[in-house]
Computed example of a mutant assay.
Amino acid sequence: MKFDYIQALKRTHEARGAWIMHGQEPLLEQNLIDAFRKSWNIQEVERQRFDISSVSEWKNVFNALNSLSLFSQNLAIEVHGNIKPDANALKLLKQYIQHNEHNLLLIIMPKQDASSLKSAFFQMVEANGVVVQLTANYPQDRQRILSIEAEKLGIELNQDAWSWLEQHHEHNLLAARNSLMRVADTFPEQKQIQIEQLYECLQDQSRYTTFDLSDALIAGNLAQSARIFQFLISAGEPASLVLWTISKEMRLLMQLFEQPQNALQLGIWKTKISNYQQALRRLNPQAFLHWPQLLLRIDAAIKGMSKENPEHLILQSITELCGKTLFC
């Protein structure tokens, strides 16, 4: 089956089998992941995460799917990356789909091109599970998605205000959601938002987004990256979305280091390939070895599962991505 974002959001609590989410809309991806994790917590589903950087690592995923802990009845496994299973792993995927009705394999990938969507991997999951394309190509789609975000904040926008917001942010859903948060905070007693409130709230404000953070990180501009990070946090940006941005860039750089000829296949835009190549020349590959552990520490800190300060750890990861060190 194929689901859009709204359809998938309504089905997270009942998801089983194999799901693929792919796209380049961080707001949609993070919202769905958060919805899945909330559902797993409520249902006491055991969760594991794998970051795939080579085909051979798919075997670890299927081994995990076949081994529950003594205290769990159901298992959800998140797989992050852009490496599709090979023929042997596809056999394991087929066996899993045919014989496991209770666990969930959730695969999160960047935007895929048409040829990738026709691959045996995608065709198998589409025929036996769910494929979710995280896109919002039309104004009505973006307004439906942002209406859900506005409802969470307890506000409504009239049609003129929606049109103004769309034009102001040039289709950037994440930036538009942040503006909804800002206008809700600025006018807490105003439930019906007009253009006047949006204009007053947003006209003079800097509009840094996580996309700006990505560009600064890949450029190795530590001062700008730290400035954008502090702005995002002060503007109410969830730390989990900042982590998503940092994790995405770290994964792309590690994968490009291993597969220097496959930049496009990894989901890097053609116009930005040279930026990533320059970043690799600036970075010490030895640093890649402890990046996954650093990301896990940040994730645990954000969720309150450790006593470490998540903002300090995020700043450490930003520093490392820029090829610098916090201490001499």
Rank of each mutant, 00 (worst) to 15 (best):
K2V: 10
Y5L: 02
A8I: 06
R11D: 01
T12P: 01
E14F: 07
A18W: 05
W19Q: 01
I20G: 02
I20T: 13
Q24S: 13
E25G: 12
L28P: 11
A35S: 07
A35D: 01
K38C: 00
K38H: 08
S39C: 01
I42M: 06
Q43Y: 11
V45Q: 00
R47W: 01
D51A: 13
V55I: 15
V55P: 09
V55R: 12
N60C: 14
N63H: 11
A64T: 13
L65R: 00
L68I: 11
L70W: 02
F71E: 05
Q73C: 04
A76C: 12
A76P: 06
V79C: 11
V79L: 11
V79W: 10
G81N: 07
N82M: 04
D86F: 07
K91E: 15
L92Q: 14
L92G: 03
K94D: 09
K94H: 03
Y96D: 10
I97K: 05
I97A: 07
Q98Y: 01
N100E: 15
N100A: 11
N103P: 07
L104N: 00
L104K: 06
L106Y: 06
P110K: 06
S115W: 10
S116M: 03
S119F: 04
F121D: 04
F122K: 03
M124N: 10
M124Y: 08
V131F: 12
Q140G: 03
D141S: 05
D141T: 09
Q143F: 12
L146N: 00
E151I: 07
E151C: 01
L153Y: 01
G154L: 04
G154H: 04
I155R: 03
E156V: 05
W162D: 14
H168F: 15
A175D: 00
R177L: 04
R177Q: 11
S179I: 09
L180H: 13
M181C: 11
R182G: 06
V183R: 00
V183I: 13
D185F: 02
D185S: 08
P188D: 12
K191H: 02
K191W: 10
Q194N: 14
I195Y: 02
I195A: 08
E196N: 12
Q197Y: 15
E200H: 12
S206C: 02
T209Y: 00
D212H: 14
L213M: 05
S214K: 15
S214V: 02
S214P: 11
L217R: 04
A219N: 03
L222I: 08
A223G: 07
A223W: 02
S225F: 09
F229G: 07
P238A: 10
A239C: 11
L241G: 09
V242F: 09
W244P: 09
K248L: 15
E249N: 15
R251P: 10
L256S: 03
L256Q: 09
E258C: 06
P260W: 13
P260F: 10
N262I: 07
L264G: 12
K270V: 11
N275M: 09
N275D: 06
Q277M: 05
Q278N: 06
Q278H: 04
R281E: 04
P285G: 07
P285D: 08
Q286P: 05
L289S: 04
I298E: 07
I302P: 08
I302M: 04
G304A: 05
E308I: 03
E308P: 02
E311R: 14
L313M: 12
Q316H: 11
Q316E: 14
I318S: 05
E320T: 01
E320Y: 08
K324G: 08
F327A: 02
C328K: 15
